[in-house]
Computed example of a mutant assay.
Amino acid sequence: MELITVDDVRAAAERVRGVVVRTPLLPCPWDEGELWLKPESLQPTGAFKLRGAYNALAALRPEKGVVTHSSGNHGQALAYAARAFGVPCVVVSPRVAPAVKVDAMRRLGAEVLLVDSDERMESAQAVAEERGLTLIPPFDHREVIAGQGTIGLEIAEDLPEADVVLVPVGGGGLASGVATALKALRPGTRVLGVEPALAADAAESLEKGELIRWPAEMSYRTIADGVRTNLSERTFAHLRAHLGGVVTVTEEEIRAAMLTLARSARIVAEPSGAVALAAYLAGKTPPGRTVAVVSGGNVDPRLLSEVLAIS
């Protein structure tokens, strides 16, 4: 399988310029100057997914519209991009997706179809065939991966001396893109993926050297709804080639990271957005100057209230 290159990421950066927020690197003085946060929660749709979704539409220019399957963040991003290009957007979402994300997709103009968790991919493909729409999956797509990789370009420019970059892993599109960019531009920087122990298919896949898929009933145990998805053959190939490894975090560590982000960094993060910092705070990552990507902030208000109530 042909992997994307840093040139693909650079092309994506040109396409998304002026639409995607170039998020800053925020130093964390409460951590003795060794930690920076990359707050993708500042994107217009509240998560990094806008980078890949907009790049895909800008590259493909679908005339009849687009369809995808998503628990929320990619769906919001694709709806936002589709609205900018003036085309329809359909999102097939699992019934258990957070209501805050489903409502946001609809506000952005998407038609949302709710299905059982294990039917989302097949349902999206069926809609694409029936309506003649272009399917843009949340991670298993070259242009989507290249768009997410623009985060790596920005980190390389803003903190070239970074030793470690921590990236959440769900379907693997974000980690694939960031690792591709940084390995090319800053080969001395180690990119590590982070995922919940309750949805650790990427860690198992890389350990065994083959793609391992976890059933939904296993991965849906984690509160980190944005990273419950398995890798694809495409993202697995990218991670094998470029990623420095995967570490896992517990549910308690994810909640603790959300609390730290809110109290110390004044950043609202959804569980998936907090997993990278969770690994750092738990002492599971190598020492050195570290960037933790806060991938999104679209958190259910009730869950956020529970987390903030932790003493």
Score class of each variant (00 low, 15 high):
residue 6 V to S: 11
residue 8 D to W: 04
residue 10 R to V: 10
residue 17 R to D: 14
residue 19 V to G: 05
residue 20 V to H: 12
residue 22 R to M: 08
residue 23 T to H: 07
residue 25 L to Y: 12
residue 25 L to D: 05
residue 27 P to M: 08
residue 27 P to C: 08
residue 28 C to W: 14
residue 34 E to S: 14
residue 37 L to T: 02
residue 39 P to N: 06
residue 43 Q to S: 06
residue 43 Q to N: 13
residue 45 T to H: 09
residue 51 R to N: 12
residue 53 A to M: 07
residue 54 Y to P: 11
residue 56 A to E: 09
residue 61 R to Y: 11
residue 63 E to S: 15
residue 63 E to L: 05
residue 64 K to A: 14
residue 64 K to G: 02
residue 64 K to L: 00
residue 65 G to M: 02
residue 66 V to R: 04
residue 70 S to D: 13
residue 71 S to W: 13
residue 72 G to N: 00
residue 73 N to I: 02
residue 76 Q to S: 14
residue 76 Q to C: 15
residue 77 A to R: 06
residue 80 Y to R: 06
residue 81 A to K: 00
residue 81 A to E: 11
residue 83 R to P: 05
residue 86 G to P: 12
residue 87 V to E: 04
residue 88 P to L: 01
residue 90 V to N: 01
residue 90 V to C: 03
residue 91 V to G: 05
residue 92 V to K: 07
residue 96 V to C: 09
residue 97 A to D: 12
residue 103 D to A: 14
residue 110 A to F: 09
residue 115 V to D: 11
residue 119 E to T: 01
residue 120 R to E: 13
residue 120 R to A: 09
residue 121 M to E: 15
residue 122 E to G: 06
residue 125 Q to V: 07
residue 128 A to K: 02
residue 130 E to M: 11
residue 134 T to N: 01
residue 137 P to R: 08
residue 140 D to G: 04
residue 140 D to I: 00
residue 141 H to A: 03
residue 145 I to Y: 08
residue 150 T to K: 04
residue 150 T to E: 10
residue 151 I to C: 14
residue 152 G to R: 01
residue 159 L to G: 00
residue 167 V to M: 10
residue 171 G to Y: 14
residue 174 L to K: 02
residue 179 A to Y: 04
residue 181 A to W: 03
residue 184 A to R: 02
residue 192 L to D: 11
residue 193 G to R: 01
residue 202 A to I: 02
residue 202 A to W: 13
residue 203 A to D: 02
residue 204 E to C: 06
residue 215 P to G: 02
residue 215 P to L: 08
residue 216 A to L: 08
residue 216 A to P: 09
residue 216 A to M: 06
residue 217 E to Q: 05
residue 218 M to D: 10
residue 220 Y to F: 14
residue 226 G to H: 06
residue 227 V to S: 09
residue 228 R to Q: 15
residue 230 N to I: 04
residue 230 N to G: 01
residue 234 R to K: 15
residue 236 F to K: 02
residue 238 H to Q: 03
residue 243 L to F: 06
residue 243 L to S: 04
residue 246 V to L: 07
residue 246 V to A: 06
residue 251 E to V: 06
residue 253 E to L: 04
residue 253 E to D: 08
residue 254 I to L: 08
residue 254 I to M: 11
residue 258 M to N: 07
residue 261 L to E: 13
residue 263 R to V: 12
residue 265 A to V: 00
residue 266 R to F: 12
residue 268 V to M: 09
residue 273 G to Y: 04
residue 273 G to W: 14
residue 285 T to M: 12
residue 288 G to F: 11
residue 299 V to S: 07
residue 299 V to W: 12
residue 300 D to H: 05
residue 308 L to P: 01
residue 310 I to V: 13
